[in-house]
């Protein structure tokens, strides 16, 4: 506690404590801190915080840019692959739906044949027919891409898909017959 000298204590007026303090509020700020020492710490911390914030912002921006680029590249390739498979998507939405259904059926049959592990070259005509149909699908597709929608070609393409399904179905039946025949042979 500060020791008061007599001349500091003025009994000029008597006041209530609350109002006295309120009236002299500003004069109450009597202590002086080490201004220079405190400032050094403040400005150093503010500088490093700003640097850190800038670093975080630049790194975040770089990460966002990288993700965007990857997304664009991914979307481009996915779109390109889908576009390769779906020829009628740009012609007509109904035909496109039909194409999707037919291609799904083709994939299902091809998958089933693959699962049997049967050498399709042993089949009499199936595999050659499939190859021939695939060539035609490729040929018609290219024509449609280059020259735009052509009703005849579109119908032919749908027809080719259906034919391919029939051939694949026949191949699958043939494989099943062959396998059951083999089993019977073993049993005998």
């Amino acid at each position: 506690m500060i020791i008061l000298k007599e001349n500091h204590v003025k009994l000029l007026c008597v006041m209530k404590l609350e109002s006295y303090i309120k009236e002299n509020r500003k004069a109450l700020d009597v202590e002086k801190p080490d201004e220079k020492y405190l400032w050094k710490g403040i400005i150093k911390a503010v500088g490093s915080l700003k640097k850190l914030r800038r670093l975080i912002i630049s790194r975040s921006a770089a990460a966002v840019a990288a993700i965007t680029i990857l997304a664009i590249i991914g979307a481009y390739f996915i779109g390109r692959n889908q576009h390769n498979n779906l020829i009628l998507v740009n012609v007509d939405s109904k035909l496109a739906k039909q194409e999707v259904i037919l291609l799904r059926q083709i994939d299902d049959y091809s998958e089933q044949i693959k699962k049997t592990g049967f050498n399709v070259d042993q089949l009499v005509s199936g595999n050659r027919e499939v190859e021939y149909i695939d060539d035609l699908i490729h040929y018609y597709s290219e024509d449609l891409k280059q020259n735009g929608p052509n009703p005849r070609l579109i119908n032919s393409l749908i027809d080719l898909y259906e034919k391919k399904i029939l051939v694949l179905n026949r191949m699958l039946n043939e494989i099943e017959k062959y396998e059951s025949h083999e089993k019977r042979k073993i049993n005998l």
Partner: peptide
């Protein structure tokens, strides 16, 4: 509290008294 009056005291003393 309402009627209790105090002499004029240097603010330095009040500041330190508050701290105590």
């Amino acid at each position: 509290s309402e009627d209790d009056d105090l002499p004029d005291i240097p603010m330095e003393v009040i500041h330190n008294s508050i701290k105590s």
